[in-house]
Amino acid sequence: MLEGKVKWFNSEKGFGFIEVEGQDDVFVHFSAIQGEGFKTLEEGQAVSAEIVEGNRGPQAANVTKEA
């Protein structure tokens, strides 16, 4: 698991990027966000996630919002 913060997230398109210190930004799709209801993230929000290899490079999986 790694910790980072949301760089930006487009709720209409359902994707965005997470900033991780010392690494390239990581793509995040709404389907990777854990929880019930409408899955979205806010800019600057702290999150933790796993990194997996997607079709277009590294992407976030099992994204959870930090308190």
Rank of each mutant, 00 (worst) to 15 (best):
E53L: 14
I33L: 07
E3D: 10
K13S: 08
Q34H: 10
A67D: 12
A32R: 01
E43K: 15
K5T: 10
F17L: 05
Q34C: 14
N62L: 10
G22P: 01
A46N: 12
E12S: 13
A61R: 12
F15N: 03
V20G: 02
A60F: 02
A61W: 08
A46P: 11
F17Y: 08
I33T: 04
M1S: 11
G35C: 13
W8A: 00
E3H: 15
G37M: 05
E50S: 13
D24W: 09
E53G: 09
F17T: 02
Q34E: 11
K13M: 09
V28I: 07
E53V: 14
S48N: 10
K65P: 11
G14K: 00
H29N: 02
K7R: 10
S48C: 15
P58L: 12
R56C: 13
E50K: 12
G44F: 05
V6P: 02
Q23K: 12
N55Y: 14
N62R: 14
V28H: 04
S48V: 13
D24Y: 11
G57V: 04
D24I: 12
G54P: 02
F30T: 08
G22M: 05
E3S: 14
V47F: 00
E42Q: 12
G4T: 01
M1Y: 13
V6D: 03
N62S: 10
I18Y: 02
E42F: 14
A49F: 15
H29R: 02
E42K: 14
T40K: 07
K5Y: 10
Q59Y: 13
G14P: 00
G16S: 00
G37S: 06
Q45S: 08
E12R: 12
F30W: 15
F38T: 06
P58C: 09
A61G: 09
T64Y: 12
S48R: 15
E53R: 13
F9P: 03
E3Q: 15
L41G: 02
V26A: 03
T40S: 10
G16R: 00
S31Y: 05
A67F: 12
A61I: 14
K7P: 02
K13I: 08
Q59M: 11
I18H: 00
K39Q: 09
G57H: 05
Q23D: 07
G37D: 06
D24N: 12
A61P: 02
V52Y: 10
A60L: 05
V6T: 03
L2S: 07
E36M: 10
F38K: 05
G4V: 03
F15D: 01
A32I: 03
F27H: 02
S31R: 07
P58V: 10
E66Y: 14
L2Q: 09
N10Q: 05
E66F: 13
I18D: 00
E36L: 10
V26R: 00
N62I: 10
K5A: 03
V52F: 10
E36F: 10
F30G: 07
K13F: 09
V52D: 03
S11L: 08
N62T: 10
N10I: 04
E50Q: 14
S48P: 02
V28N: 04
G4A: 06
P58W: 11
A49T: 12
K39G: 05
S31D: 08
S48G: 07
E42S: 12
N10F: 05
E19S: 14
A46C: 15
G16D: 00
D25P: 08
E21Q: 12
E19P: 01
T40I: 09
K39I: 07
E43R: 15
L41K: 00
V6G: 02
K7F: 01
N55R: 15
T40V: 08
G4W: 04
E50N: 13
G14R: 00
Q59V: 11
S31W: 08
G37I: 04
A61S: 10
F15L: 05
V63Q: 01
D24M: 12
V63I: 06
G57Y: 04
A46T: 12
K65T: 11
G22E: 05
K7V: 05
E36R: 09
F30V: 09
V6E: 03
N62K: 13
R56L: 09
Q59W: 10
F9M: 02
L41S: 02
G14A: 00
K39R: 11
I51F: 06
A49N: 02
L2K: 12
W8I: 02
F27Q: 00
V20D: 01
G16N: 00
Q34S: 11
V6A: 00
F17S: 01
G16V: 04
G14N: 00
V20H: 03
H29K: 02
S31A: 06
E43D: 09
Q45R: 06
D24L: 12
A67M: 12
L2G: 03
A67T: 13
E21I: 11
G44P: 01
K13T: 07
A46I: 14
R56V: 07
A46L: 14
V26D: 00
D24T: 10
K65V: 14
V26C: 08
E21F: 12
Q23R: 14
E50M: 14
V28K: 00
K65N: 07
G54H: 07
M1L: 13
E19H: 11
K13E: 04
T40L: 06
F27L: 05
G35R: 00
E66C: 14
F38G: 05
M1R: 15
G54R: 07
E53P: 12
L41Q: 01
V47W: 00
A61Y: 08
K13V: 08
E53T: 13
V28Q: 02
K5G: 00
F38A: 07
A32V: 09
V20S: 05
G44V: 04
E19Q: 12
K13W: 10
V6L: 02
E19V: 10
W8R: 01
H29S: 02
V20I: 14
E19R: 11
K7D: 04
A67E: 12
F30L: 08
G37Y: 05
E21P: 13
Q34V: 14
G44M: 04
A67H: 11
F38D: 07
A60Y: 01
A49L: 15
F27E: 06
A67I: 13
I33G: 04
G54Y: 05
E53Q: 15
I51G: 02
P58R: 15
D24A: 14
F17R: 02
A60P: 02
A61C: 11
E42D: 09
V63L: 08
Q34F: 10
E50H: 13
E36N: 11
T64S: 10
V6H: 01
F15V: 06
K5C: 13
F38Y: 12
F15M: 06
E42I: 14
A32L: 01
S48Q: 12
E66W: 11
T64C: 10
W8H: 01
F17M: 08
W8Q: 01
E43H: 14
G37V: 03
K7T: 03
G22F: 07
I18N: 01
E12T: 13
F30S: 08
M1E: 07
G22V: 03
R56T: 07
E43T: 15
P58A: 08
S11D: 08
K65D: 04
N62G: 05
G57W: 06
A46R: 15
A67C: 12
T40N: 07
A60H: 02
V26Q: 00
K7W: 02
N55E: 13
V28C: 07
M1I: 13
